[in-house]
Write a protein that binds this DNA or RNA. Structure first.
Length: 544
DNA sequence: GCGGATCAC
DNA sequence: TATGGTGATCCGC
């Protein structure tokens, strides 16, 4: 009973804090959240420390006002704020029940115990034995363009077409950022030089960088064109280096110097015991520097405690706002409000929040390459909205053609197709269909995509896309074929007819037969691939 | 299974 | 005047 009263006092305190927070929230200017939204997702990127964010947001806001994009964003912002308000009302109700509803008090206390048990399990599963480094190239595309043309080094410059992909640090001082439309960037920085994309160059440089890094870890895991995870544990062992911070820092400094020397690109590194922490760490000291996170559990949790939620990979603008609506700013706040959050969010989201806030993450650094691919697609934005009809359908056809090329390059066939459309009011829709047959050539893609598209007429589109999923490789089919092969004749696994043992003959025949359930089953059995990586989930939760 | 929404880069 | 392309995942229905 005593404990129960203690809890009640705590609840009372929480409720008062929350009410004060809600009152403060009411005072926030209605346009403030929209201004932040329009400022884009990369506001907290490095190189922005010295800019006057308020002023920049004001310029972006007035430059956007009146456009269809603006109106669409305004609508989304309103929906988000309504959602947040609904959750806040829910929370008020929880606090009300906590004050007077004995049954709910008990449930809440039990839930808290359960969560604490879950956290203990998570903590005991912590693997702190690995030395993992996240390598992140600084302003990657921009730094490559500077290597290609030295004159660009001393001027504000960005890379992209219509929308910017990245900006050099000089441009960032003006508030120019990735994902920003060019015309707004020019308002912020009239002298901005904008360079068109040279993706093949960037891919080449990316490979060069990976080649240097591979000397330290052969199994390195590229996370994107400009990011790599590596595991230095073996390297340190092999070179009989001691495992202390000093030594690790030295090795990473050496790696960064080597990358810079060989490729001309500066990188930032995060060093930690898992990928989650390493990723956060590489962002702590950008550009051209490194940050070390201890591998002692206590220090890790201390590090996470003060960390703003947004720094976690996977917590974006929306979830950040939703959390702020509950007065949650840091990972420490997440842990503190854990019971409430277990009511507010779904199981997956909740567990992820708790895990991340404890600084627990995967230690698996392994490149699955293309074998893990779930979908492949192609989409295009039109310079002017296109209405239903021949022109739109010819655009669809060329999308299907390029997609078919991609498929054949990767030896893939697909069992599901979807189209994506964005109307001239920036509303996005997808239409998906599972197929009875595997498809891969442009004609079949176009035929299926066209059916999905025509249903939606009449349309006025600013974007059209096609995406394929339920993929498998043609070669997995070859493997299946070999299994069945005999000396000089091969039975077709579909119709069991004996075929001449000649690759092209068999291939042609099976292409024709590929639409039967039999083959689909065999192919799926052959496929399977590496086991799916699972999060450390413990299902003590939400058994009902 | 489908469609919308969110997220990363 | 004007706001990208590719891929993944989660959630509600």
């Amino acid at each position: 009973m005593e404990q129960c009263e203690g809890n009640n006092n705590d609840v009372e305190k929480e409720r008062i804090i929350f009410d004060v927070h809600m009152e403060k929230n009411q005072e926030v200017d209605d346009e403030a959240t929209l201004k932040r939204r329009l400022a884009g997702p990369s506001v907290l990127k490095s190189g922005q420390e010295s800019v006057n964010q308020e002023r920049i947001n004001e310029i972006i806001y007035s430059a956007s006002k009146g456009s269809k994009y603006f109106e669409a964003e305004q609508k989304r912002d309103l929906e988000l704020r309504n959602r947040i308000e609904r959750v806040q009302q829910e929370v008020k109700e929880y606090y009300r029940k906590l004050e007077c509803d004995k049954g709910f008090q008990r449930e809440w206390a039990e839930r808290t115990d359960e969560i604490d048990g879950y956290m203990q399990e998570l903590r005991s599963s912590r693997d702190l034995s690995q030395v993992i480094v996240h390598v992140d190239c600084d302003a990657f595309y921009a730094s490559i363009e500077e290597l290609r043309n030295e004159n660009l080094k001393n001027v504000p410059m960005a890379v992209g077409k219509g929308v910017l992909c990245t900006a050099n640090y000089m441009a960032r001082k003006f508030g120019v950022r990735s994902a920003m439309p060019e015309f707004i960037a020019r308002k912020l920085c009239p002298d901005l030089i904008v360079i068109p994309l040279n993706i093949p160059e960037y891919a080449k440089k990316s490979k060069e960088i990976q080649d240097v890094l591979a000397e330290y870890d052969q199994n390195l895991c590229p996370a994107s064109i400009d990011e790599v995870y590596m595991n230095l544990t073996s390297y340190i062992h092999l070179h009989e280096l001691s495992n202390d911070e000093d030594n690790i820092q030295k090795v990473v400094t050496q790696i960064r110097n080597k990358v810079l020397e060989v490729t001309g690109v500066s990188v930032s590194c995060g060093i930690a015991a898992n990928k989650l922490l390493a990723k956060i760490a590489s962002n702590m000291k950008k550009p051209n520097d490194q940050f070390f996170v201890s591998n002692e559990a206590e220090l890790i949790e201390k590090f996470m405690f003060e960390l703003p939620t947004r720094r976690i990979n996977g917590i974006g603008r929306v979830l950040e706002q939703e959390l702020l609506g509950l007065d949650i700013k840091t990972c420490g706040d997440i842990i503190h409000s854990r019971t409430l959050l277990s009511y507010v969010f779904k199981e997956k989201t909740f567990q992820n929040l708790i895990q991340c806030s404890l600084g627990i993450g995967s230690t698996i650094v392994q490149d699955f390459g293309d074998s893990n691919r779930k979908s492949i697609g192609s989409e295009i934005t039109f310079s002017k909205a296109i209405t239903s009809g021949g022109l739109l359908e010819s655009k669809l056809q060329s999308l299907c053609q390029s997609l078919a090329d991609d498929l054949s390059k990767r030896d893939l066939i697909a069992n599901s197709i979807s189209i994506k459309i964005k109307t001239d009011t920036f509303q996005v829709h997808t239409r998906q269909k599972n197929l009875r047959e595997y498809i891969y050539n442009d004609t079949d893609l176009f035929c299926e995509a066209l059916k999905l598209l025509r249903v939606e007429y009449p349309l006025r589109l600013r974007l059209l896309g096609v995406r394929l999923s339920k993929l498998t490789t043609k070669s997995s089919y070859f493997a299946c074929q070999l299994k069945f092969s005999k000396q000089n004749s091969v039975p077709c696994p579909v119709c069991h007819k004996n075929l001449e043992d000649d690759l092209s003959v068999v291939n042609q025949h099976i292409d024709l037969c590929l639409n039967t359930e039999t083959v689909k089953t065999v192919i799926n059995n052959e496929k399977k691939g590496p086991p799916k990586r699972k999060r450390n989930t413990i299902d003590v939760f939400f058994r009902h």
